[in-house]
Write a protein that binds this DNA or RNA. Sequence first.
DNA 1: CCTTAATCCTGGAAGC
DNA 2: TGCTTCCAGGATTAAG
Length: 303
Amino acid sequence: MPELPEVESVRATLEPHLVGKRILRAQIHRPDYVVAFDHGGQETPASPHALLQDATTSAILRRGKQLALLAADGRVACLHLGMSGVITATSTPSQSTSKRDHVHVTWTLADGSHILFADPRRFGGVWTFPDLKALHTYRWNFLGVDALEFTAEQLHAACLITRRAIKAVLLDQAVAAGIGNIYADESLFAASIDPRTPARALSPAHCTDLVEHLHRILHAAIHAGGSTLRDYRDATGARGSAQHAHAVYGRPHEPCLRCGQPLRTTQVAQRTTVWCPRCQPRLRPAKASPRTTPNPTSAQHAR
DNA sequence: CCTTAATCCTGGAAGC
DNA sequence: TGCTTCCAGGATTAAG
């Protein structure tokens, strides 16, 4: 569930509790949840050292739905929340982590506070790297640009080279990182585009419109502290409120907020999808065959 | 190429 | 009330 806005909210609320602080101890309660990479990309047993024990944190980066804790000496710990991951900063001593609270990693800071990473469903994980270069080489380079930096030109280029539905393209983390099921549906509704539309049918103007709505919705959600549906909390334990702004996500069969028509639901790219059949008409697939001369207005985007 | 299914996992909700 | 079943989700992998 945590998508870009939720992860950014975690990053922002965790920052003051962690950056500039010394980590006295890193505890791995579930070894199979943490994977360590060396300079050559080989996986090695995770250790407290790899998890930044005895380091001072210098920054928390985010790309898409992933976070990276940077140590002043270069070490990196990449965190992915999966769908049920929760990172909590607490000043109170760590109440003995029982087996049932699903806390897989605990950091103890020099100021006596603790950072807990819990993930009941374990779709998330932790990957450690000796330096930032290794993080990029072995992990982040497989991701597309962060969704907040995603441009209409990049979207259009991605749409031209695939036969997938537009929603599948938005969900592809290698195209743009950070968009999940919620914000894919919401941005497609805002842009009045049927999620099942073949991506190739989108014009440059459609892409411009879609990216503008996507950015607006992501920024608004960040401002609202993210969407809290079930387990999501930021690093201080606070819930987000962006879920109250959802126009289609989680509202199958309910009336469209724009036209009143009942919202429809189906599966697109293996994900539950909700859209308005009236406000989001299916676009006609592009007529031109791939081998003929493309429409001059879109030719410059080919690659 | 692309879609589908299966996999990982737990807890909340729905069904009987 | 107490079961069982289903489902959600992100990402990866294998199969069609």
